[in-house]
Design a protein around this nucleic acid. Structure first.
Lengths: 261, 261
DNA sequence: CGCCTATTTGATCTGATTCAAACAATGTGG
DNA sequence: CCACATTGTTTGAATCAGATCAAATAGGCG
C-alpha cells in the first residue's frame, strides 16, 4: 500500500483480458442500471481514458486526496476502507470489474476514505473533466451514474444492517451471496464459483469481526456444506441454503436486467 | 407506525414554524452543498409541493413501496430503518429539517428500507415529475442534489465504521457530535443544545447496541461530564471532550460553508 | 530449503446481550 | 385532580458471542 496513483507504472498495452474493451464494460454496467440509446453508447465509447496496471495491495486513492480523475476497475479486485485511531480497519465495500469506486470524487472533492487493490488489477483512469463533459452532453447518462451511486449506498446500508444486527454466521453467508450475485452480473461467475482474492483478515475487516472468529465461522459454513473457500476461490455448494443462511434478499442490489451467466 | 402517506391527514395551513418557507429551507440546504445562482433559486421557489403534517412514529414510506414523490422534512425528526427476520431493527440514518430522506426513490423506484417520523413533523411532498423537470431545466441543481446523496452515503460509511470497529462509548459520543453539527448547520442548535426526540431504544437500534447497554453507556458519558440528555434535549457540556470521546472528525460531512449559529 | 504470510487451534477474557423486575414520567379518562 | 395505563428509563444478575493472546501448522514462492 505504498503508492498513490501518480506514482504507478503505466502499461497502456498489457491488459489482462485483452478481449474486454473498457468502454464496452462500462456500457454493460450502465445498461445493467437502465437503458442506453445508440447515441449514448457512441459517446461513451469516445470517453477519454488511460489504462493502468497495479499490483495487489496498492492504495489507488487515499483519505484526504483530491483526485482529478475517476477509476473504472477493468479487471482484478479492490476495496474501500477507513482506518480508526487504534489502527483498526473497516472495509466499507468490495469492488469488482465494472465498478467505479471513487465516482464520488466527482462531486465530493476530498476523499473521506481510501481505496486500494486487493489483487493485481487493471484500471481505466478517466479525467473528471471528461466525465463532466459527458454529463453535460448526455444528462440521461448522468442519471444512470447517479443511480449507480444510489445502489452503492444501498449496499452500504445493507452492510450496516448486517454488522449492527446479524450474527457472524449470517454476515459471512450474506457477503458471499452478495459477491456471487454481483460477479454473475458481469460474467465473472459460473456454476456459483468465483475468484475471490481476499484473506480472512479482509473478510473480518469488512464484517466488523476478528480474524480468528471469521476462521471459525468459515469452518461452520463449510461444515454445513454450503461453500468451499480456499486459495482465493469461493464456490457455493448449496446456493439456496447459502441464501437462507445469509438472509439474503437480492432486491437491495436493484438490478434492472436479470440475466444469469 | 400504521399509516402510509396516502392515508395521512392534510393540513395545508398549520405549519409548526410559519416563518420557515419550505423553498427557503431547501435553498439554504442546497447552498450549504454548493453555490446557487439567482435564477436557480427562482426556479426552486416555484417548485410544486404539498404540505403535510404527521404525528410521531408514523411510517412515511415503507420497504417495497414505489413512491411517486419525494419528501422534504420541514420540521420535526425522522429516521430510515430496516427490519431483519428475527424482528431486530437497524436505524440507518436520522433526519432533520432540510433533509430529503427518500430522494433515492427518484432513481431507485422501489424502496429498500422504511422511513418514519420520530417526532410530530411537517413535510413538503414534491412529485417526482416536478423534481425531474427541475433537473432537466437546471442540471447544476441536479448535481447539488447528487452531491447530497453522496454526503448521505458518506454518513452511512462513517456509521458502518462506528458499528464495526468502535466501542459503545465512542459510538454514542460520535452520534451526538454528528447530530449537533448537522443541527447547527440548519440553525437548530444554540449553545450546543439540541432537541433530540429519540428514546434510548432508538439510539440502540441506530448504533447496533441493546437498550440496556445504551443506558449504561449514557450514564458513563454523563458521568464524564460530557453531556446532559433527558426529556428529548441533548446538551454537550464539553464539546471538545465529546469530540475526542467520539473520535469525531467532521470532515466526512463535507460542508461547503462553515457557518455556526 | 527457508522465509513470509495466511490459516488454524486452544485457552482465556470481556464487552455487550438477555432476562426480569422496579421505577419514573407522561398521558388519559372519569 | 386522582387512578390507571402506557411508555421509557434504570438496576441487577446471569450468560454468551465474539475478542484477545499465544502458539502451532500449512502454503506459496524465490
Amino acid at each position: 500500500m505504498e503508492h498513490t496513483l501518480s506514482a504507478l507504472s503505466w502499461k497502456g498495452a498489457s491488459l489482462m483480458s485483452p478481449s474486454d474493451n473498457p468502454a464496452e464494460l462500462l456500457i454493460r454496467k450502465l445498461e445493467w442500471l437502465g437503458p442506453l440509446s445508440a447515441r449514448q453508447r457512441e459517446v461513451l465509447r469516445r470517453l477519454e481514458a488511460v489504462r493502468v496496471s497495479v499490483d495487489a495491495h496498492q492504495d489507488i486513492a487515499r483519505e484526504g486526496d483530491r483526485p482529478s480523475s475517476v477509476t473504472l476497475l477493468l479487471a482484478g479486485f479492490a476495496c474501500r476502507y477507513k482506518l480508526v485511531s487504534d489502527g483498526k480497519r473497516q472495509i466499507t465495500s468490495f469492488h469488482i470489474p465494472g465498478d467505479i469506486p471513487d465516482l464520488s470524487s466527482l462531486f465530493i472533492p476530498v476523499m473521506d476514505h481510501s481505496f486500494c487493490s486487493l489483487a493485481p488489477s487493471e484500471l481505466a483512469v478517466i479525467p473528471h473533466a471528461a466525465m463532466l463533459a459527458l454529463f453535460h452532453e448526455q444528462p440521461q447518462v448522468a442519471h444512470l451514474f447517479w443511480r449507480d451511486t444510489l445502489v452503492d449506498a444501498a449496499v452500504f446500508c445493507e452492510w450496516m444492517v448486517g454488522i449492527g444486527r446479524r450474527s457472524a454466521f449470517t454476515r459471512v453467508a450474506h457477503l458471499f451471496c452478495e459477491l456471487i450475485v454481483r460477479m454473475q452480473a458481469v460474467g465473472l461467475c459460473s456454476d456459483y464459483s468465483v475468484e475471490l482474492p481476499v484473506t480472512q483478515t479482509d473478510i473480518a475487516d469488512a464484517l466488523g469481526l476478528s480474524t480468528v472468529h471469521v476462521n471459525r465461522t468459515l469452518q461452520e459454513i463449510r461444515g454445513a456444506g454450503l461453500i468451499k473457500f480456499s486459495r482465493g476461490r469461493l464456490v457455493a455448494l448449496d446456493w439456496e441454503g447459502l441464501c437462507d443462511a445469509g438472509e439474503f434478499e437480492q432486491s437491495y442490489l436493484h438490478r434492472q436486467r436479470t440475466k444469469t451467466v
